[in-house]
Design a binder for these strands. Structure first.
Length: 205
DNA sequence: GCGACAG
DNA sequence: ATCTTGTCGC
């Protein structure tokens, strides 16, 4: 890794793995208190150089009506390392989540418990924020625990759905299937969050 | 040296 | 993820 192109900072893989095992042990796999959920949201982060912009897009589950979007500009602290996405994206996500109410369930662009240490980005966010989360990724992660995800085949691509926190895999898959949109590989809330984060990073950067 | 593993 | 036009394939 070249010192100029990779911002590793004080990142220590050993300490990060320990944190992931600690958070992963706190995951609670259980049914949502109320199903189907009323309000769902998706969160995504867009990067412009060293700046980061997180967006949370809210939808009414029954109607798929867009409710609102919350964004937050922040600083991108770290490059991406496989297995450690949360240490790059979670800080920006936390800042955006501070600015809005919690949805009944939050979709996150990344894996949940389908992760070598049972703590992908969706789990990291769900455990820290104590909010139900679903991990949605376009590809598998090497070393992930077998049987910890549902694979949704979608023509060219596939979706890997896993529990983030406070939901069951069965409910997570139902929610994702309901939110699939023809205009995007990702479910609607993540598609909207993705677009909102990019727009906000450009207009408010 | 080759291969590769969310975003 | 991001750099970025045309191009191959259904």
């Amino acid at each position: 890794m070249s010192a100029v192109s990779r911002r590793a900072g004080r990142f220590s893989a050993g300490r990060a793995e320990e944190a992931q095992r600690r958070l992963g042990a706190l995951v609670e796999i259980r049914e949502l208190p109320s199903f189907p959920p009323r309000v769902v949201a998706g969160v995504d982060v867009h990067y412009e150089g060293s700046r980061a912009c997180a967006a949370v897009a809210f939808l009414e589950y029954a109607s798929l009506r867009e409710l609102k979007t919350t964004t937050a500009l922040s600083y991108s602290p770290l490059d991406y390392f496989p297995g450690f996405l949360a240490f790059k994206e979670a800080p920006a996500i936390f800042k955006a989540l501070e600015r809005c109410e919690k949805p009944d369930v939050l979709l996150v662009n990344g894996h949940g418990v389908c992760h070598p240490r049972g703590c992908g980005l969706a789990t990291h966010v769900g455990v820290v924020e104590k909010v139900p989360t679903i991990g949605v990724a376009l590809g598998p992660l090497a070393g992930a625990r077998p049987g910890s995800f549902a694979k949704i085949e979608r023509g060219q691509s596939s979706l890997y759905v896993s529990v983030g926190n406070l939901i069951t895999l069965e409910q997570a898959e139902k929610v994702v299937r309901r939110l699939l949109a023809p205009e995007s590989k990702l479910p609607l809330p993540l598609y909207l969050a993705h677009r909102a984060a990019r727009l906000a990073a450009r207009s408010r950067g």
